[in-house]
């Protein structure tokens, strides 16, 4: 009886050993495949109902990155049964190609109006037409953080990317631009001049807070909107330095305090800057800064001299098209 029990136990141990061994083999094989697939990409067979957005959410942890899958596989939408590759690492940093490189236009709007327009005021119809043009022509509106990550070679962005910004903080941004941007689900950045807030034609903190919660990123456009690149009449260099620090720091702190968010970017008043201002921006923790030099931006541009194209009220759609160049030709073979 005792021998029988012993034999049974030995057989059990033996079986368990075999079981563990097979599990081990299975897991080893499985882990090799997973490792291969996880290194740079994953091969996926599309199931019914899967979209670019939910594939991106599932494999890239971000449903807004469906464009990566679309661009890599050169598809507009996945079809069930189709096998696609999902790249898990960037494959086109800087948008470099043998015939040139990607550039990102940054648009800037000032005042907007319901009907009338002049050079410095864009009317509602034109603004809506321009936003619709971006949508109909396959442009992706990206955030400033995405742009800066592109400039730093940390992130790839859609081929036809564009950034929308607005300066100073006029009421018309809330009344005209904001509803249209919401309609198109476009992220945008508003650079506010903090001394203007609450004044006659300017936005209130209440309006700014509401926009901030709904896709409009609020950043700094200085405190008083003085031309920071030049000394004022009878201003000593010491006074100038102090004034610059106030323009840069007080507005940053106020935005951070009022909106409980980081303020990392600034748009120079009148688009003008100099090396001293840039040194101060670095000292006070700004990550990038924007001028009004009318050009699109390649990745190798200085982060503190990012170009922006001012969109004027007298522009028609042809003029607008000229401001949104997304590629610069250059022989890079």
């Amino acid at each position: 009886m005792f021998i029988k029990i012993k034999k049974t136990r030995a057989a059990l141990v033996c079986c368990l050993n075999f079981f563990c061994f097979f599990i081990l083999i299975f897991l080893s094989i499985h882990s090799v495949d997973a490792k291969n697939l996880n290194e740079n990409f994953i091969i996926v067979k599309i199931k019914k109902g899967e979209t670019l957005s939910n594939l991106a959410d599932k494999y890239l942890d971000d449903n807004s990155k469906g464009w990566i899958i679309a661009e890599f596989n050169n598809i507009k939408a996945p079809t069930p049964g189709q096998t696609i590759i999902i790249p898990l690492k960037p494959f086109k940093l800087g948008g470099l190609k043998p015939d040139g490189y990607q550039t990102v236009p940054v648009l800037v709007y000032n005042k907007l109006s319901e009907n009338s327009s002049n050079r410095s005021v864009v009317n509602k119809t034109s603004f809506e037409e321009q936003m619709r043009y971006l949508k109909d022509n396959g442009f992706s509106v990206i955030t400033i953080s995405q742009l800066v990550n592109f400039l730093d070679f940390k992130e790839q962005i859609p081929e036809k990317s564009v950034v929308i910004t607005m300066d100073k903080g006029w009421k018309s941004v809330y009344n005209i631009a904001y509803p249209i941007l919401k309609k198109y689900k476009y992220p945008a950045t508003l650079f506010v001049c903090t001394d203007f807030i609450g004044k006659k034609e300017a936005l209130s903190w209440k309006q700014i807070k509401e926009m901030s919660k709904n896709g409009i990123n609020i950043e700094c456009n200085s405190k008083t909107y003085r031309n920071m690149a030049e000394l004022k009449n009878r201003e000593s260099f010491k006074e100038y330095l102090k004034a610059l620090a106030n323009e840069i720091l007080i507005s940053k702190k106020l935005i951070q305090q009022k909106l409980s968010k980081q303020c990392n970017y600034i748009a120079y008043p009148y688009g003008k800057t100099n090396n001293l201002i840039i040194a101060l921006l670095r000292k006070y923790g700004y990550h990038a800064a924007f001028t009004t030099k009318c050009c699109s931006n390649p990745f190798f541009i200085n982060n503190y001299l990012i170009n922006r194209s001012v969109i004027y009220g007298n522009y028609d759609i042809k003029d607008f098209k000229k401001k949104i160049a997304v590629f610069s030709e250059r022989n890079l073979k």
């Binding site: 081990l24 897991l27 080893s28 499985h30 882990s31 495949d33 997973a34 697939l37 996880n38 994953i42 091969i43 996926v44 067979k45 599932k58 494999y59 942890d61």
Partner: peptide, 18 residues
């Protein structure tokens, strides 16, 4: 042998690749 992988995003991936 590194077979027991702790739960992470790639678990979802391995299920599809499988």
């Amino acid at each position: 042998s590194g077979c027991f992988v702790l739960p992470r995003k790639s678990d979802k991936i391995s299920s599809t690749s499988k």
